[in-house]
Design a protein around this nucleic acid. Structure first.
Lengths: 248, 248
DNA sequence: CCCCCACATTGACTTAGATCAAAGAGCGCG
DNA sequence: CGCGCTCTTTGATCTAAGTCAATGTGGGGG
C-alpha cells in the first residue's frame, strides 16, 4: 500500500507526510481536529487540469504528493508557468472566489482539500492557520521574485540549472535531508513543462540539458532520473552564490 | 505647502492620501490611534537607497508619495527589479529581520514608517492590520506572477506597453479615477530603471518607446511626461485582453 | 513481445534583442 | 547664459535563443 492509498483510506493528520510544513504546521491538537473534520482527499492523474483560470473555486487545499503547476496563458497561446506546487504547498485563496490561474497536475497528484467556506471559518477562529498562511504566502512571494530574476536576466543554461536546483532542494527537504553534495531525484516535469516555467522553447531546454550532461554537471538515466554529483557546482551554473538562493 | 510638508509637520491619519488603500485601510478608530502613536515620516531623495539587501530591517512602512523599486542583483552585476512600490504599497516584512532586496527611491519619496517591533505588537493585537497585510501580500503575489508572464513570454514592445499600462493604472487609482480612455501621467522611472524591471537593456527600451511614439500609441513631452490617447489600444499593445490584467 | 505514440534530441537557419559606439537634449550650477 | 553631466536616442553589428524540420527512443497497451 502506498502512502497515497493509506491516506485515502485511513487519513490521520498525525501521520501526514506534510504535517510539519503545510498550512496546518502550527496547529495545536484542537485546531488540527477542526481541520481534520472538514478535510477530504482527492487524487488526480498526470496531465489533468484541476482548476481552470476564471473558474469558481469552491475548495482550497495542500499538495500531499506529486507536482502541479500554476500557469497563465495569453490569447495567442503563449503560456507561462508562474509557480510550481510541491508537497506541502497550498492551493487557493481564502477570500477570492475565482481562480486566477490554471492548476495542472504534472505527475499523479494527491491533494488534501477543504471546502473553501469551511476553511475560511476555521481560519477566522484559529489564528495559527491564518498566520501560517501569511508566512507561506510571503515565502511564495519571495519565490516568485526570485524567479523574476531567473526569467529576466539569466541565460538558458542558468535557467535550467536554477530549475534543477529548486527541484533538488525541494526533494531533499521532503525527505528531511539537507541540499548538499551528491543528490539524486526524479524530474517531475516534461521538457515542455520546463520550457513553460523557464520562458524558453522545449528545444532550447533539451539542448541545454544535453550540454549540462556533456559537461558533467548532471547525469541522466532515462529522461527523468537525474543525478547531481555536486550541488554547489549546480548552483554555480545557476549563477547563484554557493550558499544559494532561498532557504528551504 | 505640499502634501509632503503638511504630513511631515502635522501628520493626521484622517487626511492621509493613502488612508483607504494602505495597510491601515481596514482599521477602526482605536486601531488607527494605536498606529498613529508609533508612526513617523521619513523622506528620501530620488536615487537614494533606503535599504540594502541583507541589511537588518528595523522598520516597516507604507509609501505615501513617490516611487521606489525592489531589486535583486547577481554577483556579476546583472540586476532585476522585482517590484515597484507605489503610494499605499507596504515595505518590509513583520517576522523577518534581514531585507531580501534593495529598496531604491526612483523619485523623491515620502514614507510612513513604524518601528518593526512596535508594528508587530500592533499586528498581534489588531486583527484588521494582519488581515489587510495578508490581502495586500496576496495581491503582490498576483502582481509578481503577472510580471512573470511579462518577463518570460512578452516581446520588448509588449513589455514596454505593459509597464506603461501599470503606471497609468496606478496613477489613475491614486487620483480616484478609472483607467480608461485618454490618460496623462509622469513616468517615475529612467530608461535604465525601466530596463531593469523589464529584463531588457536601456537601448531596447529607448527604441521601443520611440516606436510606440511613432505609431501613435503614446505621446511624449520631454522624457517623462506621457499621454496615452487610448488606454485600450495600449492594453492591446501589451498583449492583454482589453479589460486588462489585474484589477487595481 | 513488439508496435505506437508521445516525448525527446539534433541540425540548419532566422531573428529579436544585446552589444558596442557615437551623437543629441534637458537641466542644474557656477 | 553657457558649461558639463546625466540621461536618452540612434546606428551598425553580433549572438543567444527561436523556428522549422527531421530523426531518435522508451515504456505502456494490444
Amino acid at each position: 500500500m502506498t502512502v497515497q492509498e493509506a491516506l485515502m483510506h485511513a487519513p490521520n493528520c498525525g501521520d501526514c507526510p506534510i504535517r510539519h510544513r503545510a498550512v496546518c504546521a502550527r496547529c495545536e491538537a484542537d485546531e488540527l481536529a477542526a481541520l481534520d473534520e472538514i478535510k477530504y482527499y482527492r487524487s488526480f492523474q498526470a496531465g489533468q487540469t484541476l482548476i481552470w483560470s476564471g473558474d469558481r473555486m469552491d475548495f482550497v487545499g495542500s499538495v500531499v504528493s506529486g507536482l502541479a503547476t500554476l500557469s497563465q496563458a495569453m490569447e495567442d497561446g503563449r503560456t507561462q508557468t508562474v509557480g510550481l506546487l510541491f508537497p506541502s504547498d497550498f492551493v487557493g485563496r481564502p477570500g477570492r472566489d475565482t481562480a486566477p490561474y490554471n492548476v495542472v497536475a504534472t505527475t499523479d497528484l494527491l491533494m488534501c482539500c477543504f471546502r473553501k467556506k469551511a476553511f475560511e471559518g476555521v481560519m477566522t477562529r484559529t489564528p495559527n492557520v491564518g498566520q501560517r498562511l501569511l508566512e507561506m504566502t510571503l515565502d511564495e512571494l519571495d519565490a516568485a521574485r526570485e524567479w523574476m530574476l531567473v526569467l529576466g536576466r539569466k541565460t538558458a543554461r542558468e535557467k535550467i540549472a536554477s530549475l534543477l536546483a529548486i527541484v533538488a532542494r525541494r526533494d531533499a527537504s521532503l525527505h528531511l535531508r539537507r541540499a548538499t553534495g551528491r543528490m539524486v531525484f526524479d524530474l517531475p516535469l516534461t521538457r515542455e513543462a520546463m520550457a513553460d516555467y523557464l520562458g524558453l522553447t522545449l528545444e532550447t531546454v533539451s539542448r541545454q540539458i544535453s550540454a549540462l550532461k556533456r559537461d558533467g554537471v548532471i547525469l541522466l538515466e532515462g529522461n527523468r532520473h537525474v543525478t547531481v554529483p555536486d550541488y554547489n557546482r549546480l548552483l554555480e551554473e545557476a549563477g547563484d552564490d554557493a550558499d544559494g538562493g532561498l532557504p528551504v
